[in-house]
């Protein structure tokens, strides 16, 4: 668990880059620091491994104040991934991946085994790449190597500073998926800086939305999309927040809440969709008018029913109006 307690950062003569930040991160969560450039998100991230000094307040990892730890040892226990060029060009891939184990004094065999393990994690042939250098790899491959380098000494905490920001959109999505897959296995506590709202919605368990060094809202992506706390937040996440929210929900969830419609057997022109498809893509498909009817089936290819724009709209109404209203009612009763 990581706690930020009244954390502030000021450079001499300027206003605060980070101003009285308070929040807690649970173990195994991905928390994304989101905001425009200059909002202090990177500074906040870099304070965790003390690449930036903390002016006021403290950051605790598992109740241990990081200010009291030796900074070199602290950094070796925290994985660190940066946007681009973070690999050392003078070292080959194996040396790059095993740099932290090497600094920690692991023996050769242990390092090599760890290298092989990590390369398999991202589906690259360890032997083919070990003697190659970063400049011989594509941008996407370099970034994946950067990620496994951070994982090498199995640190409980990872810091990632716009790790996928320099990649083109197609590769970025692929690597995001791959990373989520890895995270499901390794369950690290991850602090992640991004300026991309879609990336944050996709990757984050929680989002820290920042402006001018202050937290505007801290919550789950769904929470922020449904209840933006203030004008700034709702502006930042955009007018299409309902549509964005649909990307967090699947047809299966809709089916559970309000059910699907019956299939009209007389319609010939129909398309199939899996029940685990997210609602944003489903809606896009419906809007594209690709067929007269969209039939939902489950993983065993059993037909569940049909989905329509009207269903999606009903579901949104439930999620964004009825449920919040019910929640408010409940709060009143408790009061």
């Amino acid at each position: 668990m990581i706690s930020f307690k009244h954390v502030s950062k000021s450079y001499t003569g300027t206003e605060k880059a980070v101003n009285d930040v308070n929040f807690e991160v649970e173990q195994g969560e991905i928390v994304i620091f989101l905001g425009p450039s200059g909002c202090g998100k990177t500074t906040l991230l870099r304070m965790v491994n003390r690449l930036e000094t903390i002016t006021e307040g403290s950051i605790l990892i598992n109740d241990q104040d990081i200010g009291e730890l030796n900074e070199i040892e602290l950094r070796r226990k925290i994985g660190y991934v940066i946007q681009s060029n973070g690999l050392f060009p003078n070292m080959n891939i194996e040396e790059n991946v095993t740099i932290v184990p090497d600094l920690l004094g692991w023996d050769k065999k242990k390092k090599h085994n760890r290298y092989k393990e990590l390369m398999q994690l991202i589906g690259l042939d360890p032997m083919e790449y070990r003697k190659r250098f970063p400049n011989e790899l594509s941008g996407g491959q370099q970034q994946r190597i950067g990620v496994i380098r951070a994982l090498a000494a199995d640190p409980p905490v990872m810091l990632m500073d716009e790790p996928f920001g320099a990649l083109d959109p197609l590769i970025r999505e692929k690597i995001q998926d791959e990373f989520l897959q890895i995270q499901r296995e390794v369950k690290k506590t991850i602090l992640f800086v991004s300026h991309d709202i879609d990336e944050a919605i996709k990757m984050a368990d929680k989002i820290v939305l920042m402006r001018d060094g202050e937290i505007m809202q801290y919550g789950t992506p769904s929470d922020i999309l449904i209840h933006p706390k203030n004008e700034y937040v709702s502006q930042f996440i955009g007018r299409d927040r309902a549509i964005k929210h649909l990307s967090l929900r699947t047809i299966a969830q809709l089916q559970e809440e309000i059910g699907l419609v019956d299939i009209d057997q007389s319609i010939v022109d129909s398309k199939q969709v899996n029940v685990h498809e997210n609602l944003k893509d489903t809606l896009a498909m419906l809007l594209n008018q690709e067929a007269d009817q969209v039939i939902v089936h489950d993983d065993n290819d059993e037909v569940q029913g049909a989905i329509t724009i009207d269903r999606v709209q009903r579901y949104l109404h439930l999620e964004m109006r009825q449920k919040p209203a019910q929640a408010r009612e409940k709060e009143k009763v408790i009061e």
């Binding site: 491994n49 690449l51 070199i72 040892e73 602290l74 950094r75 070796r76 660190y80 940066i82 946007q83 681009s84 060029n85 973070g86 690999l87 050392f88 060009p89 740099i99 932290v100 600094l103 380098r149 810091l159």
Partner: peptide, 18 residues
């Protein structure tokens, strides 16, 4: 030397000499 390499070197926990 590219500041990104320096940042990475510090970030992985290298001492000044390393």
């Amino acid at each position: 030397v590219n500041p990104a390499f320096i940042d990475a070197a510090n970030g992985v926990g290298m001492k000044r000499r390393q």
